[in-house]
Design a protein around this nucleic acid. Structure first.
Lengths: 116, 116
DNA sequence: AACCATACCTTGCGTAGCAAGACTTGCATA
DNA sequence: TATGCAAGTCTTGCTACGCAAGGTATGGTT
């Protein structure tokens, strides 16, 4: 049952995760695991296995940049910063997301109303 | 530019379309093209190339059933009905959708606030 | 020295939407 | 009667993404 819900969530995340990363970085630089924890808490990703390949892609397409910095734990951390291009993409996404999510919510609402 | 938006929309649709079909069928039986037109108008799908394979899958997994009926134009139409199983899945989806879409909207909102 | 947690990354897989186009059949028009 | 058009349905090949599982390196703790 909650197995089913995980499958549903996984499919929703496709194509949304990338912009959630950008939106999160817009409020401050973060390193890999930090991002993973935040997005996992929000149920927006399942773990690092999704994030690291995505971050590599985003760096390759110029949505983010990276730099190394010594962390509080003494370990080196790779921090991610959003670029101007990244900011623009978040704007694009916001428009599309608002339109589509409204339609989905609308459709679900209709059915809810008809159900006894 | 709007090319970019199409790409974004395409990715959001993955995993959402299936449940939009179910929600639409919950308010009455429909045939293939009719569904395609409604969902295209709502920007929830790009066309029949996505729908027909999806409907076939959904029939195979017992989410919908089908019957043939003579249409107003004299042509035969394949009508789709939602099953009990389908209704249950819409319920599951609604829960997941509400949780995730709220998180996404929340993240986008934060960034909006910080942007001057 | 041994161990564990932190932090990064890779490989292989399944799946879903899409573009483009093929096939069938009823209706209209010349 | 033949031709063309539109309504319907379905198929093929493609690409992309999230995920599970596992691999590597390093610094702190006992």
């Amino acid at each position: 049952m909650s197995d089913q819900r995980e499958k549903i969530a996984t499919n929703i995340r496709k194509g949304v995760l990338e912009y959630c990363v950008l939106a999160s970085l817009a409020s401050g630089d973060k390193y890999g695991l930090e991002l993973a924890e935040e997005l996992t808490a929000r149920k927006l990703t399942a773990g690092e296995g999704s994030l690291y390949p995505l971050l590599a892609r985003m760096k390759a397409t110029g949505l983010v940049e990276t730099y190394w910095e010594e962390g509080a734990s003494g370990r080196k951390r790779k921090y991610y910063t959003i670029t101007e291009h990244g900011h623009l993409m978040v704007g694009e996404f916001r428009g599309v997301w608002e339109a589509i999510s409204m339609q989905v919510t609308d459709l679900l609402g209709e059915q809810h109303g008809i159900d006894s």
